[in-house]
């Protein structure tokens, strides 16, 4: 669709004839997914040690901007990817969910590091054992902390998922774990913790 190839008079006069070369066709769906996968804007959601590595990935050495990912948005309203970088505490969980809810669809979540993915080495009263209990996760990045390379791999995996997935329905629901509501039928009664 380059400008030079356009004959005098432009598209309106010449119609499709004018576009003798340099254009591509595709289903609308493919194009939208292609565009989406190249314009992901992550929200800054640094929690703990992993956040330092996430910032390092944005730094000059690893240069996240070559994937078009460097625009970390401060406001969740402008972001469509949440990189949960670090351990999620019981106190943080409601905040995290609220921020997730504030993000616009379509939205994706990368769970960065073992703490966010499964609680990691902190299997205790304070840490949520896997952020997938609160929000649906698309890609898990393993490691403690995952090196910036691992994060990049997770991001590229996510790009691939966006391109291959469905347009309107998001692929899968994270780990398939449903949010357990307090007092929901079948949930274990809790002796300790928040009530």
């Amino acid at each position: 669709m380059s400008r030079e190839s356009r004959p005098e008079g432009g598209l309106l006069d010449a119609g499709l004839e004018g576009l003798s070369h340099n254009f591509l066709t595709g289903t609308l769906e493919e194009l939208v997914k292609w565009a989406r996968s190249h314009s992901v804007m992550p929200a800054t959601f640094g929690l703990a040690c992993c956040a330092i590595e996430m910032m390092a990935a944005g730094g000059p050495h690893y240069d996240l901007s070559r994937y078009g990912m460097e625009t970390f948005r401060a406001s969740p309203r402008q972001a469509d990817l949440m990189i949960v970088a670090g351990r999620v505490s019981q106190k943080m969980a409601p905040v995290l969910r609220q921020i997730y809810d504030q993000m616009m669809e379509p939205k994706w979540v990368i769970s960065m590091g073992v703490c966010a993915s499964s609680g990691g080495m902190f299997n205790n009263y304070a840490i949520v054992q896997g952020v997938d209990q609160i929000v649906p996760v698309d890609v898990y990045a393993p490691g403690c902390p995952p090196s910036p390379e691992t994060l990049m791999h997770a991001i590229l995996t996510l790009h691939q998922q966006i391109r291959d997935g469905e347009l309107t329905r998001r692929p899968g629901h994270g780990a398939g774990i449903v949010i357990e509501q307090v007092g929901a039928p079948g949930s274990t009664p809790v002796a300790l913790g928040r009530n």
């Binding site: 703990a48 670090g86 351990r87 505490s89 106190k91 902190f122 205790n124």
Partner: peptide
């Protein structure tokens, strides 16, 4: 504060 309380002293 406390949004990152990890219970490390207990662990």
């Amino acid at each position: 504060i406390g949004y990152l309380h990890t219970g490390m002293e207990r662990t």
